[in-house]
């Protein structure tokens, strides 16, 4: 899905846990996430800490969209 959307020239960032798959299938901008059942969350944290974590991750994803790249890049 990632690649097909990118074919329209729209930058896309893949937030995924198993970034090896993400890379194999050809995503270009990748933000590694926490775990498969809760990619952008961590239920073991206190609510306010979880929120902060999630905000930081989404910010990283947005910044990735605003970053020019020439090859597959992990934004960690």
């Amino acid at each position: 899905m990632v690649k097909e959307i990118e074919r329209y020239g729209i930058p896309i960032v893949h937030m995924a846990t198993i970034t090896t798959i993400s890379q194999s299938v050809g995503a270009n901008r990748i933000v590694p996430t926490v775990a498969i059942p809760h990619p952008v969350g961590n239920p073991t944290l206190k609510p306010e800490d979880e929120k902060a974590l999630r905000k930081e991750m989404v910010k990283r994803a947005l910044d990735a969209l605003a970053t020019d790249i020439t090859e597959t890049t992990h934004f960690e």
Partner: peptide
């Protein structure tokens, strides 16, 4: 085991 995290894998 098959984990849900990349580190686990």
């Amino acid at each position: 085991p098959e984990h849900t995290t990349l580190a686990g894998k």
